[in-house]
Amino acid sequence: MAEDGALDAAAVWSRLEGDPEESANLAIDVDGVWFTCYFFDIEEIEFTFDPSDVIDATSFAPVRAFVTWLGRATGREVIVTMEGTDHAAMPALIRWRP
C-alpha cells in the first residue's frame, strides 16, 4: 500500500518479485461463488473457483456475471479452462471477448 493507504499495484508486484516467499491473493464472492486470484504473473490474471459450487443454471449465473464483469472491466478476453498449468493448450469452457 502507498503511504496514504491507497492500493499501489507496482508496490505489490515489487514486493512479490523481490521475495520468493511472499504471496498475495484476492478473493471475491459473487452470489455464493468464490473467485480467488493468485498473483503468479503480471501479464495474466488467473482466478480459480470450486466447480462443485456450480450445479445448475442458477448457480452458473454468478460465473457468467463475473466473467462478463472482468472482461468489461479490463477490456480483455476472459477464458475459463479446467485447472492446469498450460492454459493456452486447454480448450475454453467459457470465452468472453470484448
Score class of each variant (00 low, 15 high):
55 I>M: 15
54 V>S: 09
32 G>C: 04
6 A>D: 11
8 D>N: 14
91 P>Q: 08
84 G>W: 12
49 F>A: 07
17 E>C: 01
27 A>P: 08
8 D>A: 10
4 D>T: 02
87 H>N: 07
38 Y>N: 06
87 H>D: 07
83 E>G: 02
59 S>G: 10
4 D>V: 01
8 D>M: 06
89 A>Y: 02
70 L>T: 03
43 E>S: 11
20 P>M: 07
61 A>I: 08
32 G>P: 03
89 A>I: 00
75 G>K: 08
55 I>T: 15
68 T>F: 05
82 M>Y: 13
45 I>A: 01
71 G>D: 05
60 F>H: 11
7 L>N: 09
16 L>K: 08
15 R>D: 08
18 G>Q: 12
81 T>M: 01
45 I>S: 00
42 I>S: 13
52 S>M: 06
30 V>F: 06
54 V>Q: 12
90 M>T: 09
23 S>A: 15
80 V>S: 03
35 F>R: 00
24 A>W: 07
6 A>K: 13
15 R>I: 03
31 D>A: 14
73 A>E: 15
34 W>P: 00
14 S>K: 14
85 T>Y: 15
10 A>I: 02
74 T>E: 00
85 T>K: 14
56 D>H: 10
79 I>M: 12
54 V>G: 09
35 F>V: 02
94 I>D: 10
20 P>N: 13
18 G>T: 06
16 L>Y: 05
98 P>Q: 02
36 T>L: 12
93 L>R: 08
14 S>P: 05
55 I>Y: 15
61 A>C: 04
52 S>F: 06
38 Y>H: 09
77 E>Y: 01
52 S>D: 11
48 T>V: 14
73 A>K: 12
70 L>A: 04
6 A>Q: 13
35 F>C: 02
2 A>D: 15
33 V>L: 00
34 W>E: 06
48 T>K: 09
66 F>V: 02
9 A>W: 11
5 G>K: 01
82 M>S: 15
66 F>R: 03
10 A>E: 13
49 F>C: 10
51 P>K: 11
15 R>A: 12
44 E>G: 00
62 P>T: 01
36 T>H: 01
63 V>Y: 04
96 W>V: 04
59 S>K: 12
53 D>K: 12
63 V>Q: 04
27 A>R: 14
27 A>M: 12
8 D>G: 07
67 V>L: 11
40 F>H: 15
73 A>C: 09
88 A>W: 02
25 N>C: 13
72 R>P: 02
95 R>K: 12
10 A>N: 11
44 E>M: 05
26 L>M: 13
53 D>A: 13
89 A>P: 02
19 D>T: 02
58 T>D: 09
30 V>L: 08
53 D>S: 13
42 I>K: 14
28 I>W: 10
39 F>H: 03
22 E>P: 07
2 A>C: 06
4 D>R: 03
31 D>E: 15
